[in-house]
């Protein structure tokens, strides 16, 4: 679809959000820069506590940043929400249990100036059969589809999904993403937070990896994999590795992590050749195996690196 907007769908500059906790202030987001063009499908990937939800909350105008700037289609988030340009499927919660599915849609629809017809969004979300059911009696998947129906009401140009498939079973998850695929193909910009790697991998064309409140990697799936350059070398040692042997492996150039599982050692490294040579020659290892980086190992390597930086500021 043609991008008729000069302004990017999302523009975030040096976003910082600090929560004043009882003890120490929690720095949930520590200087995030992010630009997303209209029509992109982007996964915001990261472990719990990476700052994904907080970043999305700022974009939705649900919370204000401590410092920095966030704009949606060139507008402050709250104005973009009022104009119906951005909408979201929120994480669990957020529904009234004693309303029916249809009543919930009608109630939220009544808050918009020109919503899509209630019956239309109910049908789009596949809820027609359960429209008269109480929310309390809906399954987790049905409740999630109801949140999706609510998000469709303003017919937004940008749809934010915060952990949209949390609590869904495998088939509900597949159905959900099929619906989303259709939407994205129609040209809607979609940004979703997840910690399911396969979802990010199969649905998004771009992945923004967050850890400890910062963006640690941003690019296509292939680029993220390459960035980690992680390969895993594992082999059996003649005897259970002693601390000294592990230490020697750790000191090899490019080694990120050494794990001992009985006689087997597992080494994650940027230079697998050096590790392989050392294992075979110095440690008389057998059954050597080299596995190239999966998205998962990239995820681990990149988020761990961010954690390590945290320890030594």
């Amino acid at each position: 679809m043609q991008n008729r907007d000069a302004a990017p769908a999302i523009e975030v500059r040096n976003l910082v959000k600090t929560f004043c906790g009882r003890a120490d202030p929690v720095r949930a987001v520590r200087g995030v820069d992010l630009a997303i063009r209209a029509g992109e499908v982007v996964a915001l990937l990261g472990p719990n506590g990476a700052g994904k939800t907080t970043t999305l909350d700022v974009l939705l105008g649900l919370t204000s940043p401590t410092s920095g700037r966030a704009e949606v289609f060139g507008q402050p988030p709250r104005l973009a929400v009022r104009a119906g340009r951005i909408s979201a499927v929120l994480q669990t919660g957020g529904l009234l249990r004693d309303l029916t599915v249809r009543e919930t849609v009608r109630m939220v629809a009544s808050c918009f100036d020109q919503p899509r017809p209630s019956e239309e969004v109910i049908a789009r979300a596949g809820l027609t059969a359960v429209a008269t059911r109480m929310v309390a009696k809906c399954s987790g998947g049905e409740q999630q589809r109801l949140r999706f129906a609510l998000a469709l009401l303003p017919d937004p140009d940008l749809l934010i999904l915060d952990e949209p498939t949390a609590g869904m079973d495998v088939s509900a998850r597949r159905d959900f993403w099929e619906t989303m695929h259709a939407d994205a193909e129609a040209g809607r910009t979609v940004v979703f937070a997840t910690h399911y790697l396969e979802e990010a991998d199969s649905f998004a064309r771009r992945i923004v990896l967050m850890a400890d409140g910062s963006v640690v990697a941003d690019g296509s799936t292939a680029e993220i994999r390459a960035k980690a350059t992680g390969r895993t070398v594992s082999a059996d040692l003649p005897v259970v590795a002693c601390a000294e042997a592990v230490d020697r492996l750790r000191k090899l150039p490019g080694v990120a992590d050494v794990e001992v599982r009985g006689r087997r050692v597992v080494v994650r490294s940027g230079d697998s050749d050096v590790v392989a040579r050392a294992l075979l020659v110095e440690h008389e290892a057998t059954d050597l195996e080299v596995v190239s980086g999966s998205l998962e190992s990239a995820f681990v390597a990149l988020t761990m690196a961010a954690g390590a930086k945290e320890v030594q500021p």
């Binding site: 939705l60 105008g61 649900l62 909408s87 929120l90 529904l95 009234l96 808050c111 303003p154």
Partner: peptide, 16 residues
């Protein structure tokens, strides 16, 4: 209670 259990966030996504 409703507002704090997430309904407030849901309504926060509307012009209300």
């Amino acid at each position: 209670v409703e507002r704090m259990q997430g309904w407030g966030r849901q309504l926060g996504l509307t012009p209300l």
